[in-house]
Design a protein around this nucleic acid. Sequence first.
RNA 1: GCCAAUGUAGCUCAGCCUGGCUAGAGCAUUCGCCUUGUAAGCGAAAGGUCGUGGGUUCGGAUCCCAUCAUUGGCUCCA
Length: 616
Amino acid sequence: MRILQLHCDEIEYTPTKKEISAAEEIQPETKRFEEIVVAFIAVEDGDDSTVAQKAINEIQDSMKKVGCKKLLLYPYAHLSSNLASPSTALSVLKQMESLGTDLEIHRAPFGWTKSYKVQVKGHPLAETSKIITKERTEEETSEAVKSESKIKSYWYIMELDGSMKKFSDFNFAKHQNLEALAKYESVKKRSVDEAPPHVSLMKKLAIADYEPASDSGNMRFYPNGRLIKSQIERYVTDRVKDYGGYEVETPIMYDSHHPSMASYFNRFPARQYSINAEGKHLFLRFAACFGQFLMVSDFQMSYKNLPYRLYELTRYSFRREQSGELVGLRRLRAFTMPDCHAFCRDIPQAIDELKTRFDLSKDVLNNLGLDDNDYEMAIRFTEDFYKEHKDIVHELVKKHGKPVLVEMWKERFFYYVLKWEFNYIDNLGKASALSTDQIDVENGQRYGIEFVDENNKPQHPIILHNSPSGAVERIIYALLEKAASDLKRGKKPHFPLWLAPTQVRVIPIKEEFLDYAKNLANKISEQQIRVDMDDRNESIGKRVRDAEKEWIRYILVIGEKEINSKNINIRDREQDQSREASYEAFIDEIKKQISSKPFEKLNAPFFLSQRPQIMV
RNA sequence: GCCAAUGUAGCUCAGCCUGGCUAGAGCAUUCGCCUUGUAAGCGAAAGGUCGUGGGUUCGGAUCCCAUCAUUGGCUCCA
């Protein structure tokens, strides 16, 4: 519905002749009103009583502001090119007429050509236009979101030997995190009432913070956070490319009326951000699927090309999660996700590919600093798929090396027949999915993706959807939570060295050692190591303390002794006392830890005296 | 989204229940002193629309209502 609303000194109209056969039966007579708000209204396709209600509410709100209690509803088709049928339009207008409370409402006749004369007031709120759509009153919730709660699931724990046990028959004593996951997923029971520790850490370490000027769940990343993110992004991208993914880039917004979109909407349980622009109803992508599928559907593919893998690092994917679900970096509305699709000729090929990607995901998580003890696996499948492919399910469980949470569906509801994921279990027993892969049997057809098989017949591929790491922000969340649990156990928390914003901090004792210290730092920096210098006029104790608060692994204090010695004095966060080593040995030690990882330069001023204080 | 709690200086918090001087502290910042040996050297200054809007009152950070944000629970995911 489109409304042009005018606050008028006066309006006068005269119905001249019937414009359409559905016109109202009235006695045509001239009407004149003074001190009135006139709403020129075009009722559009899809408008109904909820739109009528919403519209009248909005009109009433704005009338309150201008202090007017008289309203004229004036049918005005020319505001839209997507009109509702005359009968619907008339009924919607009548509803609006009846829904207004506390107002004197008039309605100009429908279906008549009218001449009119209008005198509009000169104040800023006198003229407004409104577009009222159904989405704004009643959330456009996808079918998948709506019926997700109706799905019937059967929960088990699968042992390494492939046997499936009910929770009650499984001994969780040695598998407390798995128990947490099982309860979390199935019983939906969570009893925590403190904020997750990573929230304060992400602020204290100047990694990320909320951005009040944006929507919730859209974070700002400070230089430290951007550096860490960037390192992770590059690492995961490198790994996917090594595995055989080809990197692409696709738009972040799509037309929801595109035929492939409309039906996908209803198969993917996510809420979207929507944008109306130039009459189009666009939504922000919640994964890279659309872009890649639309792209690949234009490819000419043979079975010889498969498996074929496309990869995109989405910065960002958007999911308009319910506000109550958002917490720190754990759950966001805008997030960065590596998303790799493999197009496979059939199920056997898909299964082969699935195994490769399973190993890849495990190895990626490991290198990011999350080991097997940090996450638990869940695997979900339809009963039919399981009956035919028990062996692959067992194999994945064996690869994982620990019992696994199983969810089995009687019928296939989603577009996939199997999905596994690794869940990080945090300090408060909450589970969040990181890596995941799915076997998609539907979207090949939906998006018209085809390849030609040996018999020259077009076929739709089976598609795998893998994120080897899960959302990058969530990796940071997991690393921070892990650090927080170290802290709780009295251990010094740390980041993997290759992710640390500063790897080496140089502290000259006195001003006179500045030059020497700077030279040393330059030498280290040339080795692609992030080094900075605390040149502030503060005590040694203070500067060491500040470095420790930033979790800096190596602190080099430079004084008379060091200048006169060949060796460097190293305060190593991993050990409790300082030690001496030669420059070469020190560089070697660092190189060994970071050699297989990407390198980004220091993302802050080299001199601490030049750094603004971001967080304390 | 629903229910609950919280929102005071850049950060962490006190003050609120029981309304009344100029709204306090520590850290950070600026300036000065100190010139430094491995987790906080000393002093001073500056810094606040008490989340926002409305109400009650002679008077609101304090009581009431609405709203926004954060956190927790429900629900949900990468």
